[in-house]
């Protein structure tokens, strides 16, 4: 048995993604989206390998990652909480939900908890305007969120980690 470094593992994964989506430039977004989903970030190494495999300059990949708000260079938490900040949710008092999220997670918006479990962000309109305030936890949507509900939403995420988990778990 040989030990694989994390980079070797990532490279293998990227190669199989490229095998799946192809080497055309139009395969870039699905590949990046997969990497983000699995690794909670797209780091320099991944950017270089993807660029090599698609035969484009790494700056091309970098520029795409920098453009989209759901793609990140910095590691995101296992759970990304995105509170809608656009008008209808704002009118439905999203500020109180924001305050409670910040209190319960112990971080400000734009930050990730030190244990890497949660990232707190704002999102622009998530299409739940008639049911605000609304937020996404990864791909799951919560509507008519009250400050009281925040704790429950976060606790249901925490259960995934188990009592003594020190590492974010794989999907």
């Amino acid at each position: 048995m040989t030990l694989m470094t994390q980079q070797e593992r990532l490279r293998g994964e990227l190669e199989s993604l490229v095998a799946q989506y192809g080497t055309a430039r139009n395969a870039l977004m699905p590949i990046l989206q997969e990497v983000q989903r699995k690794y909670y970030r797209i780091d320099d190494y991944a950017i270089q390998v993807i660029a090599d495999l698609l035969d484009i300059h790494p700056v091309e990949v970098h520029s795409v990652v920098s453009f989209y708000s759901f793609l990140d260079f910095k590691p995101k938490g296992r759970f990304v909480v995105r509170l809608c900040q656009t008008l209808c949710c704002e009118m439905a008092d999203k500020d109180r939900v924001a305050r409670q999220l910040s209190n319960d997670l112990g971080i400000e918006f734009g930050q990730t908890t030190p244990d890497g479990k949660f990232t707190l962000e704002y999102a622009n309109c998530i299409g739940m305007c008639d049911q605000g305030p609304a937020l996404l936890v990864n791909d799951k949507v919560h509507t008519r969120v009250t400050p009281e509900m925040v704790n429950q939403i976060i606790e249901s995420c925490r259960q995934v980690f188990g009592l003594h988990a020190t590492q974010p778990m794989e999907h």
Binding site: A27, L32, Y68, F70, C125
Partner: peptide
């Protein structure tokens, strides 16, 4: 991947092609 401007049809196409929107 979270970009409002990609609702504009040519930006959408750019995004499909693997570019900035």
């Amino acid at each position: 991947s979270g970009a409002y401007v990609c609702g504009e049809e040519t930006a959408l196409i750019e995004s499909l092609e693997g570019h900035r929107g």
